[in-house]
């Protein structure tokens, strides 16, 4: 019998209760060094992964591997206890990881890197399992990757195959990735429609497109200014003209296009990193708003966002303690943690 959101969300509530609280971050910030920090981390639900990583790695890699492994296990566990429509919606939330993994493999094939190099660029938190990714990564070239993906269940396989065919004639990685990124968002919206996702979740997906467009525009703003084909349609607040303005106009007046949107605060950001923090905070706020619905996808979406943020904060603290970064600097970077 397909499990409904009542059961899934109860499990997610359980997972959420295991997220690290303010006490942990205060204690971790006060840790004297990296060793003390790993000891504190080993007193949390990350204990099994920390112990396993300590037996195989040294230094920063202990925490990177432990939190990466924990995130992978969490994502896999959610996918395992979710079935039917709910499971498909949750798979969509994790499709980004499949996209990133496929991109990492494609980049490595394009630049002629070895399979060992690819391993470090993969985080198998999506529907493509590590064994499948290993098989795909061992393909000799991008054409081989497309062939290997065809026998998987990833919804990205069709788009990748078409893009890989084009790549075989022009050898342009940029265009291949662009086609894949566009296909990713198309698949998301198509699937949300087919799965009759709640309107609020649809809106969150549209805001996700806005956040992506805004980040892309700000990223290319100081670079070449080439914006052609970078705009992703389907957003809620940021249209093509706003995107073009932000991407090509480097003056501060360009940020006027954001006034009246959820992202208006980005205009005050001093750097790209600061802007990204603000965008992340806006998206976290929208996801939090959805979490109240106990019988829908919102709780899972919010939990995954919180878990990703937790993993990032743990990596940040690990690096801070390893390199002896001042407490104040770390506290500032951690934000409201």
């Amino acid at each position: 019998m397909p499990r409904d959101f009542g059961y899934i969300n109860a499990r997610i509530h359980g997972l959420r209760s295991r997220l690290l609280g303010q006490d942990f971050y205060s204690e971790a910030l006060n840790a004297t060094d990296f060793k003390a920090y790993t000891s504190i981390l080993a007193q949390t639900p990350y204990l099994p992964e920390v112990e396993e990583a300590q037996s195989r790695f040294q230094g920063i890699k202990i925490v990177d591997q432990a939190v990466g492994r924990n995130f992978y296990k969490t994502a896999r566990s959610i996918l395992n206890f979710s079935e039917g429509r709910a499971g498909e919606l949750i798979s969509l939330l994790l499709l980004r990881y499949d996209l990133n993994n496929i991109k990492a493999i494609t980049r490595a094939k394009h630049s002629g890197r070895s399979t060992v190099d690819i391993e470090a660029g993969l985080l198998p938190a999506g529907s493509l399992k590590p064994a499948v990714l290993e098989a795909v990564a061992s393909a000799p070239d991008i054409g081989g990757v497309a062939q290997a993906l065809l026998i998987t269940k990833t919804p990205l396989k069709g788009a990748f195959f078409a893009a890989a065919m084009r790549y075989s004639s022009d050898g342009d990685l940029y265009l291949l990735e662009l086609a894949l990124d566009k296909a990713y968002f198309k698949i998301i919206f198509k699937s949300l429609k087919e799965l009759r996702a709640p309107k609020r979740f649809f809106r969150l997906a549209k805001r996700e497109v806005d956040a992506t467009n805004l980040t892309t525009a700000l990223s290319v703003r100081s670079g070449s200014g080439l914006t052609e084909g970078l705009f992703v349609g389907g957003g809620l607040e940021i249209g093509r003209s706003a995107f073009e303005t932000l991407a090509s106009d480097t003056s501060s007046s360009a940020f006027q296009v954001l006034s009246g949107t959820s992202f208006a605060g980005v205009a005050d950001a001093a750097s790209l990193s600061e802007a990204e923090t603000l965008i992340r905070a806006v998206m976290a706020g929208h996801a939090r708003g959805l979490a109240a619905d106990a019988l829908n996808i919102g709780l899972a979406a919010n939990y995954l966002r919180l878990k990703e943020a937790e993993v990032a904060k743990l990596r940040l603290l690990a690096r801070g303690k390893y390199y002896g970064v001042a407490r104040e600097v770390l506290a500032k970077e951690l934000g409201d943690a």
Partner: peptide, 11 residues
């Protein structure tokens, strides 16, 4: 000119 797509790339 970037050799990869900046869409979704970490800022």
């Amino acid at each position: 000119q970037m050799s990869f797509s900046p869409i979704g790339a970490g800022p």
